[in-house]
Design a binder for these strands. Structure first.
Lengths: 364, 364
DNA sequence: ACGAGCATTGAATCAGCCA
DNA sequence: CTGGCTGATTCAATGCTCG
């Protein structure tokens, strides 16, 4: 399955073999909604990371050796973050997960390149491995950085859905979730774990429900055994995976083939009022739900009169329902919809009820 | 009180007026056991922020937190970390606290200079300020980096003391502690907060109990109102504070003068009570214990379907497990946990069983 | 004295559309 | 691109007032 964007096609729901930087550079720019990346953490640079050159002086002391290693890791980080940024849509965003070994370097480079950090999110593991030697704190968390492509990116954030996931309380930057074990943990032919750092599907579920919409394209440049792809498929999103190791690709293919998408009704999530159509106050007057000259009441009993053009006049102040409300309260702003009430059969009813009435007519 | 180290004297238990870099450069090298630093975060705030009730948030807009660019902030960070490293004993260590605005840059520079990161420790705030506009996750944590002066530093780590503080369980890298409020929060003559970012004593208590011994010398280059000094004195450690602002120094002096060593009451502050952890229903969905689209059954056999955000839809009503249950019963409220069952092997099982399962994982 | 209820507050990179 | 207007949005804890 592919989507065309200008001349180039987007290889949706496939796992691409290759180096993620080269592959991303071959994709059309501004074509991806979200990137989720779980880059290598290790600084013991094996063959897979881009070495700067072989100019390492002999008999370097530890400090220089560290510096050269960090330098190589930084070059690698710079390169893939740059390639990632090019293919992100202007309103796209990125998530990167890491530990203290690498996350500070990744975070600094994100900022250097102009990504705009939105939150750092702590994955607090409910069942971490203990520190056996008792020399440090149990390493019980990993850090994710969530950043928009630019400071001005209008990133996707499904606030209400996340609040619902958390039973009505807004979602915090620390998430308590167990590590990936049991049946979810993929095994190879020998019964050993197929990948050393397989992420739990619960983690990706929360990321994708919160930061994407159905039909969005999610790219994972370090696909591994495909947790991102599996959860994207479940949630009715499209994915693009990039992975160089044939063994991981094979496991991921098989895994994702088995996944079934949740049914459409189940994929609907709670939406914010912001997503609902705007109804101008004037429409209530035009429709005769409120009549010119009719009185509206503030919470403290002040009165304003409705005018034919949908403005109010009260206390010598004329203006919109919001402006007059703000003036009466001496507040910088005011939501007139929830501020004003009108009288019906002697009872005071919020004008927002009338707006809801119009909205339900529009949708139904 | 001073200690002599070679020729130079160490100004113990005093607050030094001046720029922290210059002052540290004037201290003898390799003379300090621990540094605790709470540097400016470089918040880069733009306009005003109001709460939904229209009250204005008192932002951290102090002059000392302003930097012209990341480059300027990096130069500042480089300079003070270098000065700090020089005065640390070979087996000394440093703690730095920050948020996503600055901590990645600090962490990368620590690594660049040869400090050896031991843990990143997450301070999870039990009572953070919410995200008022619903545009991001509640910023509910700050990050501390704990690093040895060198890779080879034999740093102090009081494993057993921390385990005791944690009711017999190994201390993890995430600490749940409240922010500094109430009587602990220092006020100026006008009754306003004396410092915009005063840290709680419980935080410093845990750091100092875990990473120093009685008699150790702890230096804080951004002393502020002196939480580090106050807790050091309580715990029988020596401190050196550096602070440029006369107003902060004055408050800190007065505060520390009042502190008595081994204040029992203060010790108890850090021991947290364990309540039964709250488990949101959404977590059952994220973790795959219940799948979106799956049916739940009411006692009278009515059916509702689970959605991806942990809400239910049944009989055209959407909402939490509690709300939909209450609606079906025509009741004002309903405990969804005991109300709903799911089917497993043909048998109906209360969803509360799944919650218990999660709780036992969390505590075990 | 005690409890209910209301006001206050905290390291915050906190809007989006249309003219 | 700017300016102006609409209108969406909060959790935990402390301390004070009032009955």
């Amino acid at each position: 399955m592919t989507k065309t964007k200008g001349a180039a096609a987007l290889p949706l729901n496939t796992i691409i073999d290759g180096d993620c930087i080269e592959v991303m550079n071959g994709l059309p720019e501004a074509s991806v909604d979200l990137i989720f990346a779980d880059p290598p953490y290790n600084l013991q640079l094996k063959g897979d990371l881009h070495r700067p050159d072989n100019s390492r002086v002999d008999a370097v002391d530890d400090e220089w050796d560290q510096f050269s290693s960090f330098k190589a890791y930084d070059n690698f980080t710079k390169a893939w973050l740059k390639a990632a940024r090019r293919i992100l849509k202007p309103d796209g965003a990125i998530w990167v997960i890491g530990s203290y070994h690498n996350i500070f370097r990744v975070g600094a480079e994100l900022q250097n390149q102009g990504y705009w950090i939105l939150n750092d999110v702590v994955w607090r593991k409910s069942n971490p491995m203990p520190n056996f030697r008792g020399k440090r704190f149990t390493n019980a968390h990993e850090t994710m950085i969530w950043a928009g492509r630019d400071e001005s990116s209008k990133y996707t954030f499904n606030y209400e859905a996340l609040k619902a996931l958390n039973e009505g309380i807004q979602m915090r930057s620390d998430w308590v979730l167990p590590i990936c074990t049991g049946h979810e943990r993929l095994k190879d032919e020998n019964g050993d774990k197929a990948h050393p750092t397989q992420k739990p599907e619960s983690l990706l579920h929360r990321v994708l429900v919160g930061a994407t919409n159905p039909g969005d394209v999610i790219l994972d440049p370090f696909f591994g055994t495909g947790t991102t792809g599996a959860v994207a498929k479940m949630l009715g999103r499209d994915f693009i995976g990039i992975e160089r190791e044939a063994a991981y690709r094979k496991v991921a293919e098989k895994r994702i083939a088995k996944v079934r998408k949740f049914d459409r009704e189940a994929l609907q999530v709670s939406v914010s009022k912001r997503a609902e159509p705007r109804v101008p106050f004037g429409q209530l007057v035009e429709r005769g739900m409120l009549r010119p000259g009719e009185a509206l009441y503030s919470p403290r009993g002040q009165v304003a009169k409705v005018r034919a053009d949908g403005t109010l006049i009260g206390n010598d102040v004329k203006g919109s329902i919001h402006q007059v409300g703000a003036h009466l309260e001496g507040a910088p702003s005011c939501n007139g919809w929830t501020y004003w009430t009108f009288k019906q059969d002697g009872k005071k009813i919020p004008i927002d009820v009338l707006r809801q009435q119009i909205r339900s007519e529009m949708s139904g």
